[in-house]
């Protein structure tokens, strides 16, 4: 069988790639997708440790994380649509109205 540390390493790599995407991309939709990637890496670690400890609660938490991610995506994409309607752009460098 596979050691838990392999899943830990894979999850860490996927999470780091998601964080890198948030930092280097300027397209708001791609940044959103990177956040989803990070949530997914956390889910993978949840399930791996639930399996290692034979604790089913970890899987129930992943279920809740998926539900919250769905709600977050619905509201976030609606915000992006509204911003695009007002500014014709979803480049996050141009969202500086609050800067004063």
């Amino acid at each position: 069988m596979i050691p838990v540390s392999y899943y830990f390493a894979l999850s860490a790599i996927l999470f780091s790639l998601g964080a890198l995407g948030v930092l280097i991309r300027r397209n708001a939709i791609i940044i959103f997708m990177s956040v989803e990637l990070m949530l997914n890496a956390a889910n993978l670690l949840f399930v791996a440790f639930a399996r290692a400890n034979e604790a089913l609660s970890g899987q129930v938490f992943v279920f809740f994380v998926i539900a919250v991610a769905a709600a977050e995506v619905a509201v976030g994409l609606a915000l992006i649509v509204v911003i695009f309607r007002n500014r014709q752009s979803i480049d996050i460098d141009e969202m500086s109205n609050l800067k004063g």
Binding site: P3, S5, F8, A12, I13, L20
Partner: peptide, 28 residues
Amino acid sequence: LAMLLTLVLLAESAYLIFTRSDVLTVLQ
């Protein structure tokens, strides 16, 4: 800078993986 910060994050995770012995348990 983003690449550097990501590498630091990866290094921290690797440190955790290699120093904590309890994550090395093989799944039964």
